[in-house]
Design a binder for these strands. Structure first.
Lengths: 190, 190
DNA sequence: AACCTAATGTAGCAAGTGCTACAAGAGCTT
DNA sequence: AAGCTCTTGTAGCACTTGCTACATTAGGTT
């Protein structure tokens, strides 16, 4: 009942997904070697062996997670193009607030905090993820939009502000702001 | 050369400012009792004595910091009213990006991350600070603004998005977005 | 089979974690 | 002065931290 896992050689590549899963669930800040190792079915000894030290592990992990995020965005590209900015914004907002996205969002704010504190690897990962998201958003813009690039950047700013206000309990404030801006319309629910 | 500090009885009230100073500089996440105690000129033993346990300490500390933030905002109310939303936004943005604000902003993202993770006390503090900031912003709105409440909420959302993109290395993206939105004008520097 | 290197297990270390037991001092009331 | 409560110092405990020393296996090459 314990290890259905095929007992094969480990490597960074096989470890990273398991580590990422643990980190997405339990956070990055409090992540220490032994719990991480247990989640990946190894020992702290082996983590150090494969990654050298913890700092490198975190760096590699962040890079990997950023890659996963990028891939997830690629998956989530809607086939049907959208016709208004409101619709476009609603779509990406729904994406960021979807329940399956929530563990990742929780991790995301830790990454932002780490970037602000200058922790090694954090800013690079955050930067990459935001860049990817911008591209994604540009591709989702209405085809007749007068300024898709600027519009996407504008919507990104508004989106991130909305998400943050949401996580600190001011979702209503963001919503009212969006209404006032015209990017959300009163018809749609919260 | 060491303790010019008047040797008086300690209490939560005398400790909190010192603890807050340490936390603003070194962060909340990695804060442990002994460094905190040293920063406040006591021992971990005393911190537990006064606060009961660490969780309560952090909660009280966050509440105190939120109060300090609120007071700081009150101090920073400009006497001259502003005439355009652009000007208003530029003012609050400059406030949030001022160099003396930066240590606090670093802490802020930790608070947001803590809120997202559900750590005790974090969300309350974050909520209070955002509420206060909204009120502040409403008071700073142009007197002839057609919708000061909605406008302030809108600007809050945009502001927080801008700040976050900034800390993550995408200040340019936020700026372009603001330009496209009309809330920033090309004349002003970055 | 001999061998050599990569991969893993077992113990452990020095430092740090939150917190406690115990006792002693400080200042007040009586 | 005696006693009493509030405050503080000294040790220490059980546990976790990142990381290392040393020995052992596993798997492929010759």
């Amino acid at each position: 009942m314990s290890e259905p896992q095929t007992k094969t050689k480990m490597s960074k590549e096989t470890l990273l997904p398991l580590l990422a899963a643990h980190v997405i669930e339990h956070g990055l800040g409090g992540a220490s070697l032994r719990p991480l190792a247990k989640a990946a079915g190894t020992s702290d000894r082996m983590l150090i062996y494969h990654f050298g030290d913890k700092e490198t592990l975190v760096r590699d992990l962040l890079e990997y997670i950023s890659g996963v995020y990028s891939a997830a965005l690629d998956m989530a590209i809607g086939s049907d193009r959208v016709t208004t900015r409101q619709e476009c914004f609603a779509r990406i907002l729904a994406l960021g607030r979807g329940p399956q996205m929530q563990p990742f969002m929780t991790l995301w704010w830790e990454i932002v905090a780490g970037s602000a504190r200058g922790l090694p690897g954090y800013k690079d990962a955050a930067e990459a993820m935001m860049a990817k998201q911008l591209i994604w958003l540009e591709n989702q813009m209405p085809k007749d939009d007068p300024d898709p690039a600027g519009g996407a950047q504008y919507m990104m700013t508004l989106l991130e502000g909305t998400l943050m206000l949401g996580t600190v309990g001011h979702a209503r404030m963001a919503r009212e702001g969006l209404l006032a801006s015209g990017l959300a319309d009163p018809a749609e629910g919260d």
